[in-house]
Nucleic acid binder design. Structure first.
Lengths: 354, 354
DNA sequence: CTGTTAGCGCCTTCAC
DNA sequence: GTGAAGGCGCTAACAG
C-alpha cells in the first residue's frame, strides 16, 4: 500500500513522467509553476516516497555503498564504520555493513550479495584467505577501496597504516632499553597488517641483535582467550620474554588477564606495547602504551577515495594512501632489569578462564 | 556488463523464464535433467549473479532488514549489530545498518530511506525526541521491533531490559551499605532506559529514606566529557555523594577520569556501580561492578521476533520481551565510612581535559 | 516440461 | 511544457 508516482499523478491530474521530472527537482528546465505546485502538494499529501528499488533498477545505480569487515564488534572497525556511515549519508549514499567474522566464505557471499544489490562501490577489509574475488573485482574495474588489509602482488585502491614501521620502532625502543627477549603475540597471522608487524618486529630484532627465537612469537585468533593462552605459553618458557609487542585490542586484554594472574607488574616485570588504541587504554589497571591507528582519518580517506572513483568516468590508476600511526606513551615500557618475568617468583596461579 | 538471465538463456538455448525457474531451485517440479544441466553450466560459465534489485522490485520484498541505531561505535549497539548481522545472513537476509548519532532528523531520513529501499522489516533503537514516525510505522503495521528503547503510551514489538529494577537494586544495595548521598550520572535523559533508571533510582532513594537531592543527579550526553564534567560537578558539591550510579559505558570512563584526577580510590572513598558492562570493565584501573546487559540475547530475541512477524501473514499483537540484566560484582562497592569523598582532602587537581 | 506474456515503479528518449 | 512509449531484470500466471 505504498503510494507511487502514478498515485501522485492521478491526484494532481498529470502524467507520471511529469511528476517524476518535477519531484526530482529538474528545476533547471521547463515546468509551469501551476503543475509544479499541484504535484508537490499531492506528493506531500500522499506522503510519497520514491521506490529506490525501481529507481536503482532503472538507473543501474543504487546510491549505496557496501562495507565488508571482519568484525563490527571491534572498536577499530566499528569506528571506521561510524565515519563511513556518516560520510555516506552526508553524500546521499546509504551504507550497507556486512560482518564476515573473519570467514572467507561469508565474505564471498557478502560481496556477491552486495553486488547483486547493485551497490555502487565497495569498501572491504578482506579476510585474505584467498585473493580471487578481490582480484576479480579489480580486474573488472569495480569501484573498490581496501582498508586495513592489502595485497602486495596486485595494485588496488587502499588505505593502509604503516604498521611495519610502528612495530620496528616499538621493538627498537624496547631493544634500546636493554630488552633482548621480546615477545610478539598476535591473532590471525596471514592478514596484511599482522604480516607487516611481524616484518617490522623481525627487522628490529635483527638490526639490534636481539634474540630471534621462534618461541617468542605466538599467533592465534582475534579472541581474548587466544591472547591469554599465548601469553601463558610465553611466560612458561625457560627463558621468557621481558617485553611484549601485542597485536590487537582484544588480544591485549587476554594478555592482561594472564599478567594479572601471574602477579607481574608493568613495567617493572614486563614491558608492553600494544597495537590499536582504544578509549579504555588509559584507564586499564596499568595504562598501556599503544600504537594508535587514526581510525577517523582512515574512514574519511576511504570514503574520499571511493567517492572520487565513483565520480570519475575514466578508470584511474589505483591509489594507496598511508595513514600514519601515532605512538602513545602511557608508561607501560621500562628498562630491562634483573627482576623481569624471567626471575619472577610466580604468584598463586589461577588456571580458570573466565 | 553484468550477465543476466537472458545471457544465460541464450547460452543454454532456452527461455529466460526457464532459467529463472531452474536457478531458483524449484526442483520440486518439472524440469528435465538435460536442460537443467545446460542451464547450470551456462550460469557457472558466465558467473551469473541474480540482480537482487530487479528481484526485489518484482517480488516486493528485498530479503533485507534495516537496523537503525544511535551509535554503532558503542560496544553495546555494535554487539547487537553483530548478532543481528549473523542471524540475518543465516536466514538469507542482508542487514543494513544506519547510525543516527542520536539525531532525530537523521533517524527520520534513515527510516525513509530504508523504506524506500523496500526493507522487509526494521529494528530500531529510536532517538525518542519525537514518536511520530514510529507511531506511523506501527499504525501501518509495518514489521518493526524496537530495541533498548520503548514507548509507554502505545504498544510495539520490543526487546527491553529491566533497567528500573537494576537501578533500584543497585541503589538499595548502596543504601544498605550506609550510603545516603548517592549520585546518578547519565547521558541523554529522555531516552527510555535512562528514564527507567532514574525511576528505579528514585524509588530506592525514597524507600530507603536516602537524600533526594536534585543536585545529586546530572545528565548530559553520551560522551566521555559529559561524564567527566558531571562527576566534577558532583564532587564539588558542599556535600558530595559517597556513591555513584553511572548510566553508560563511555560516561563511566569520563567519571573514572575525574576520580583519578581527584585521587579518590574505589571503593574506599567512593563506591561505583555502572550500567552496561564491557569486555574492559574487569581490567580497568579499578574493576567496576556493573549491571550487565545480555547483548547477545537481546540481538537474538530481536531477530527472532522480527522473523516471526515476517513469516506470519496475519498481523499479530505486539509483544514485549524483557531480557533481564545481570549484576556483576567486581568490588567497586564498599560500606560508607568517614573518609568518603566528602571529607577527602583533594589531591593536586589537574584541570586539563585530554 | 517449457515458452509467452505481462508488469513491479521508475526514468528517459522522443513526440506533440 | 507535457504525454506516450519503452525497458531496466526478474518472476508468476497462463498457455501449450
Amino acid at each position: 500500500v505504498k503510494t507511487t508516482l502514478k498515485d501522485v499523478a492521478a491526484l494532481s491530474g498529470v502524467h507520471p513522467s511529469t511528476v517524476s521530472r518535477v519531484l526530482r527537482g529538474k528545476e533547471s528546465l521547463q515546468i509551469s509553476q501551476a503543475t509544479r505546485h499541484k504535484i508537490f502538494s499531492a506528493a506531500k499529501k500522499l506522503d510519497y516516497q520514491p521506490n529506490q528499488t525501481a529507481r536503482a533498477l532503472r538507473l543501474k545505480k543504487s546510491q549505496t555503498i557496501g562495507l565488508v569487515i571482519p568484525n563490527i564488534g571491534s572498536p577499530y572497525f566499528a569506528g571506521i564504520a561510524k565515519i563511513l556511515d556518516e560520510e555516506s549519508s552526508k553524500a546521499g549514499y546509504t551504507l550497507i555493513v556486512c560482518d564476515t567474522n573473519e570467514n572467507q566464505k561469508k565474505e564471498i557471499n557478502a560481496v556477491n550479495d552486495l553486488r547483486g544489490r547493485g551497490v555502487d562501490g565497495l569498501i572491504i577489509a578482506p579476510v585474505q584467505d584467498t585473493d580471487e574475488q578481490i582480484k576479480d573485482l579489480v580486474e573488472k574495474n569495480f569501484p573498490l577501496v581496501l582498508i586495513d588489509r592489502f595485497y602486495d602482488d596486485f595494485k588496488t585502491n587502499a588505505i593502509v597504516c604503516n604498521d611495519e614501521d610502528s612495530a620496528y620502532l616499538a621493538v627498537s625502543k624496547l631493544g634500546e632499553l636493554g630488552h633482548h627477549r621480546i615477545g610478539f603475540i598476535c591473532g590471525r597471522p596471514n592478514v596484511y597488517p599482522v604480516m607487516r608487524r611481524i616484518a617490522g618486529y623481525k627487522r628490529a630484532v635483527l638490526e639490534h641483535h636481539l634474540d630471534l627465537d621462534p618461541d617468542l612469537s605466538s599467533a592465534g585468533d582475534q579472541s581474548l582467550e587466544s591472547g591469554y593462552h599465548s601469553a601463558k605459553k610465553l611466560f612458561s618458557l625457560t627463558s621468557p620474554p621481558s617485553a611484549l609487542l601485542l597485536s590487537g585490542t582484544i588480544i591485549t586484554i587476554g594478555v592482561f588477564k594472564a599478567i594479572i594472574e601471574k602477579n607481574l607488574s608493568i613495567p617493572e616485570n614486563i614491558s608492553i606495547i600494544g597495537f590499536t588504541d582504544t578509549i579504555f587504554a588509559p584507564y586499564l589497571r596499568q595504562p598501556i602504551s599503544t600504537i594508535h591507528h587514526q581510525v577517523k582519518r582512515i574512514g574519511h580517506e576511504a570514503f574520499k577515495l571511493l567517492f572520487k572513483i565513483l565520480k570519475s568516468d575514466q578508470p584511474k590508476e589505483p591509489e594507496t594512501i598511508i595513514v600514519k600511526n601515532l605512538m602513545i606513551d602511557r608508561g607501560s615500557v621500562g628498562a630491562y632489569s634483573q627482576n623481569q618475568s624471567t626471575g619472577q617468583k610466580r604468584g598463586k596461579e589461577k588456571l580458570k578462564i573466565g
